[in-house]
């Protein structure tokens, strides 16, 4: 069996002759070693993407963010689906309701105006006294 040092001393022509000699058996598992070495070389040259810790972290962060975004969208959709429905289908009835509401509002505003006007003589009396 040749040692590594001996191989270094062999000329290229002699190495080619030995390699092409099919009677010499290849060592067991050499093909796997070649594939593994090729992969290592690819990694070193950067031809294959490697999942670095930062990428893994990004994925860990992105997944819950996407889930949260989906949840927010679902909530918004459910809320928008709950838009109140018009109480009346008939615009004439809606108008009548609107008029009733305005009558109620003016009733209540008159309430305030009535209290103010009833207090007016008292204000006037106070002003007269002050004069």
């Amino acid at each position: 069996m040749k040692r590594i040092g001996d191989i270094g001393r062999i000329g290229s022509e002699e190495l080619e002759r030995i390699a092409s000699d099919k009677t010499v058996p290849a060592p067991d598992g050499l093909d796997k070693k070649i594939v593994r070495t090729a992969k290592v070389l690819e990694l070193l040259n950067g031809t294959q993407t490697v999942e670095t810790p930062s990428k893994r972290n990004r994925r860990i962060i992105l997944f819950p963010s996407a889930a949260a975004a989906a949840a927010v969208i679902a909530v918004i959709c459910s809320l928008s689906a709950r838009v109140p429905r018009d109480t009346y289908d008939d615009p004439a009835i809606a108008l009548a309701s609107m008029e009733r509401t305005f009558t109620y509002i003016s009733e209540k505003l008159n309430y305030g105006a009535g209290i103010a006007s009833s207090a007016e003589p008292v204000f006037q009396q106070t002003i007269n006294v002050l004069k």
Partner: peptide, 18 residues
């Protein structure tokens, strides 16, 4: 409760009686 939407106000605006 009573709710009148902007769409209904549009319809009310088209009523001849108004």
């Amino acid at each position: 409760a009573v709710y009148i939407s902007s769409s209904m106000f549009n319809l009310i605006g088209k009523l001849p009686s108004i």
